[in-house]
Amino acid sequence: MIRHGHGITCDVHIYEKIKQMKLKKSLAISETGFVFDPSTGDSYTVNPIGLEIIQLLKVGKNLKSITKIMTQTYDVDHNTFERYYYDFLGMLKQMQLVTLDD
């Protein structure tokens, strides 16, 4: 935990962790926005932007290059994208679709 000047605490640790997160290798991802996790039998649907991010994660891209690609293609600035990116990865983490190891 670090303390910001204006007194808000923020768990930097989580953000650092999310940065190192890798997509589970075993996931089956369809081009139609369908994700299947064979280790749990759970299925997920994902919208086109989410799908694109997952596909970039799958090929091992990090936050920096994903942000670059997405901000070039979509009408979104870096900060906004990053905010939703973390939000999205938080969801993936909660669904246990990303891991810290490979």
């Binding site: 994700v35 759970d42 299925s43 997920y44 649907t45 994902v46 919208n47 086109p48 932007i49 989410g50 991010i53 070039q72 293609t73 979509y74 009408d75 979104v76 906004t80 994208f81 939703y84 990116y85 939000d87 999205f88 969801m91 993936l92 669904m95 679709l97």
Partner: peptide, 12 residues
């Protein structure tokens, strides 16, 4: 540029 939509994933 294409319009941006918030990425979402939903469990079936």
């Amino acid at each position: 540029k294409k319009p941006f939509e918030r990425p979402v994933i939903k469990k079936v």
